[in-house]
C-alpha cells in the first residue's frame, strides 16, 4: 500500500515538474479564466454585480471553461512521444496512474481558480476577503469531481481525432450537477452567509466526488487496454 502511494506521488511529481519547467498549462488556464471574467464584464456592461446570484455563476463558467484547457494539457503530455505506452509498462497498478493524473489536474485547476478569484474580486468589485476559507472549501469540493470525471473522459476522448470537440460534449453534462452545487454554495459564501445553510448541496457535492473518484479508479484501467 505504501508502495502504491509512493508511485502516485512520483507520478504527480513528474507531471508537476514538467509543468513547472514550461508553466504552459497554468498560465494559459489562469489567463483564460480571467479573460472569461473580463468578457462577461464587457458583454453585460456591469459596473457592479450581485454577489449572491450573478458572481458565482460567472466564476464557475470561467472555471468550467479553463478547466478543459488543463485536462487537454495533462493528457497531451502523455500522448506526445507515446509517453503513455511507456507509463503503462511501469510496474504500478493502473489506478495509480489515474489518481496521479487526477491530483495533477486538481492542482492545476485549483491554482488557476485561486489566481482568478482575487482578480475577479477587484475587477467586478465583489468582496471576497471575508469568505476565503469558504471559497477554498467550495472550490476544492467542486474541483475534485471535475478532475476525476475530467481525467476519465479526457482519456476516452484522447483516442479520437475530434478530441477537442468531444471532451466538452462528454464532460459538461456530467459536470452540471456539481456545478449547480458549487454555484449555490459560492453564492452563500459571497453574500456572507454560512455554508451550513446549504448543507444539502455539500452532501450532494461530496456524494458526486466519491462516486466519480471511485468510478474513475475502477474504470480507468479498462479504458487503456487495446
Amino acid at each position: 500500500m505504501r508502495g502504491y502511494w509512493r508511485a502516485v506521488a512520483a507520478l504527480v511529481e513528474k507531471d508537476l515538474r514538467l509543468e513547472w519547467r514550461s508553466r504552459e498549462a497554468i498560465t494559459s488556464m489562469a489567463f483564460f479564466s480571467v479573460l472569461v471574467v473580463v468578457i462577461f464584464g464587457f458583454a453585460f456592461q456591469t459596473r457592479k454585480i450581485d454577489p449572491a446570484t450573478e458572481a458565482p455563476g460567472l466564476l464557475w463558467v470561467a472555471f468550467s471553461f479553463s478547466g478543459i484547457l488543463g485536462l487537454h494539457r495533462v493528457l497531451a503530455i502523455e500522448r506526445e512521444n507515446a509517453a503513455l505506452q511507456a507509463l503503462l509498462l511501469a510496474p504500478v497498478d493502473r489506478s495509480a496512474i489515474f489518481l496521479a493524473k487526477m491530483i495533477s489536474v486538481l492542482g492545476l485547476v485549483l491554482l488557476a481558480e485561486w489566481i482568478t478569484i482575487p482578480i475577479f474580486s477587484i475587477l467586478l468589485r465583489v468582496p471576497v476577503l471575508s469568505c476565503l476559507p469558504e471559497l477554498a472549501l467550495v472550490t476544492c469540493a467542486g474541483s475534485v469531481g471535475f478532475a476525476a470525471v475530467g481525467v476519465l473522459l479526457a482519456t476516452i476522448s484522447s483516442g479520437s481525432r475530434l478530441r477537442e470537440v468531444l471532451l466538452p460534449l462528454l464532460l459538461y453534462p456530467l459536470w452540471v450537477p456539481i456545478l449547480v452545487g458549487c454555484v449555490e454554495l459560492t453564492g452563500l459564501a459571497l453574500s456572507g452567509r454560512p455554508l451550513a445553510e446549504g448543507s444539502d448541496w455539500l452532501v450532494l457535492l461530496a456524494a458526486y466526488d466519491v462516486v466519480f473518484v471511485t468510478a474513475g479508479t475502477l474504470l480507468f484501467d479498462l479504458m487503456l487496454e487495446e
Binding site: 470525471v149 476519465l152 473522459l153 476516452i156 483516442g159 462528454l170 456530467l174 466519480f212 468510478a215 474504470l219 479498462l222 479504458m223 487496454e225
Partner: peptide
C-alpha cells in the same frame, strides 16, 4: 468500452 463507461456514469 468507452461507451460502457459513459453509460455507467
Amino acid at each position: 468500452r468507452y461507451a460502457a463507461a459513459l453509460g455507467i456514469l
